[in-house]
């Protein structure tokens, strides 16, 4: 299934939860397999439902979550990008979900794919996006008492950490 077909199915199933669609971001010559990737944008509070549908629907069966990345778009928006793959049908899909910096909340998908658990903790740790419904939302790479979320574009490193000077 191409992203366009998946989009049509999702539109029929979830309607308004799909905020924006973008197919073939920069064109690309598909013949040599270099086409830059197509993606579908979904609402952050519907993420879990849509992902369950994508995993369990017979046509889709996106059972393999390759990668989950947080992004700070530097325009007041944060987001998570999901790279899905189906081991059964061998097709790929890129999902994006956006939230604002003032209200950084995105639903967890760790019930859908177990691998999302650690990825989402990393997003929480480095981007400060609260993952709603996550079973164990703690920092993962940084110490628990670290201040700030380093991968945000407006991050300022703290002066001291336990009396140790941080910027070198």
């Amino acid at each position: 299934m191409t992203a366009q077909e998946v989009f049509t199915v999702l539109k029929a199933q979830f309607g308004d939860a799909l905020t924006e669609e973008k197919i073939s971001a920069a064109g690309g010559s598909a013949a040599v397999g270099y086409a830059l990737q197509e993606w579908i944008s979904i609402a952050p509070e519907k993420t879990k439902d849509i992902c369950f549908f994508l995993r369990d629907d017979n046509e889709m069966q996106f059972d393999y979550l390759s990668c989950l990345s947080g992004v700070d778009y530097n325009n007041g928006k944060l987001g998570i990008v999901y790279h899905l793959f189906s081991m059964v049908h061998k097709h790929k899909l890129v999902l994006k979900t956006l939230c604002t910096k003032d209200h950084p909340h995105i639903q967890s998908v760790s019930e859908v794919w177990g691998t999302a658990n650690w990825h989402e903790r990393e997003v929480f740790d480095l981007f400060g996006i609260t993952i709603d419904g996550h079973p164990d939302l703690r920092r993962i790479l940084l110490p628990d008492d670290w201040v700030g979320n380093p991968l945000r574009k407006d991050y300022k490193v703290q002066e001291f950490y336990h009396g140790i000077k941080v910027p070198y």
Binding site: A25, A26, L36, Q37, S66, C67, H83, V94
Partner: peptide, 10 residues
């Protein structure tokens, strides 16, 4: 690379 170009390669 072009503006807003993005890619996931495995």
């Amino acid at each position: 690379p072009d503006k807003d170009a993005e890619i996931y390669v495995r």
